[in-house]
């Protein structure tokens, strides 16, 4: 490993640090320890918390399965299924939209300028707080919002279209908009890494565009597709802003349950629900890995990244 940043002002210290880092085998363990402390430990604590219970707004620190049992008895199945359904639907919509877009952006003969503009546009959503971005849609999709005003003004409808806001459609829509960049960017990166000569070789050997896509581009872009699904599915399962603002209380997802448990100070329930979301995510990712194997060996796809 080499610290590649070589500040011109200090041309001695950095190489020395780099050399020290590369000779000692401390870097990888240090990163692992830090990651463990910052990310893994809280998750473990969260999981442990889910085995406590609450009595009179106080957490009882005695191991029990009450919280988990209560979780499944209180009819949260419906909420869980709805959350799963919406998250998976949103992820699939993203995938269907993002893959062709990423393919076009990376290999569609887009000019350098055009590509830079597209990538810049994709990062714009990160500039703005998600609530501010989402709340704007209320003004656009509401009963007296922009869309309905236009629809009624042109005489296409007599009464405002009600399902545009405070509905599952609106929640889906909000999530699809906000999760598009996290899906597109990794796929774009992966496709961009595919050497043009591989695509040319495929054509040259007689493959139709579809065969080239299926046998060369798709398998080689799997790492990006999987990263995109992770970046999309995780936030979709935990989505909180969109169901709250665009669902208007009619679309309850797990995150809403977490929120209400939180405001009731029932921390073990919060922990159990959060742990449950993580478990769901793992199950879905495992399923995705199995599906990805049908399109190519995901392990060998990563060889492209290794060069």
């Amino acid at each position: 490993m080499q610290t590649s940043a070589s500040a011109p002002a200090d041309d001695r210290l950095l190489p020395r640090i780099g050399q020290w880092l590369s000779t000692t085998n401390l870097v990888v363990p240090a990163i692992l320890v830090a990651w463990f402390a910052i990310v893994i430990v809280p998750i473990i604590i969260l999981f442990v918390y889910s085995f406590f219970s609450t009595a009179q707004f106080r957490t009882v620190y005695e191991p029990s399965l009450d919280t988990w049992i209560g979780l499944f008895e209180s009819g949260r199945w419906e909420v869980t299924l709805r959350t799963l359904r919406i998250a998976v639907t949103v992820t699939l919509i993203e995938l269907v939209g993002a893959f062709p877009f990423a393919l076009w952006l990376a290999k569609g003969g887009v000019s350098k300028g055009g590509r830079a503009v597209c990538l810049a546009l994709l990062t714009i959503p990160f500039f703005l707080d998600m609530s501010s971005r989402t709340i704007v849609w209320r003004a656009i999709l509401g009963q007296s919002g922009l869309v309905n005003t236009v629809l009624m003004g042109t005489g296409l409808t007599d009464a405002p279209v009600e399902w545009l806001l405070y509905s599952e459609v609106a929640v889906h829509f909000g999530m699809v908009v906000s999760l598009f960049p996290p899906m597109v960017l990794p796929i774009y990166m992966a496709i961009n890494l595919i050497d043009d000569s591989l695509i040319e070789a495929s054509k040259d050997l007689g493959a139709s565009p579809w065969q080239t896509l299926r046998r060369v581009i798709l398998p080689l872009s799997l790492p990006g597709v999987m990263a995109g699904v992770v970046f999309c599915l995780g936030p979709a399962l935990a989505a909180w802003v969109e169901p709250g603002m665009l669902g208007g209380g009619f679309v309850n997802l797990i995150s809403n349950s977490i929120e209400s448990a939180y405001s009731a100070l029932r921390y073990p329930v919060v922990a159990a629900l959060s742990a449950f979301v993580i478990l769901l995510l793992l199950v879905l990712l495992a399923a995705m890995y199995l599906i990805a194997r049908r399109f190519g060996d995901p392990a060998s796809s990563f060889r492209v990244l290794r060069g």
Binding site: S197, L198, E200, A201, L220, D297, S300, S301, R303, V304
Partner: peptide, 11 residues
């Protein structure tokens, strides 16, 4: 074509 870079499929 035999390409200069060989263009063998890495996967």
């Amino acid at each position: 074509t035999v390409f200069q870079s060989y263009a063998l499929f890495p996967h």
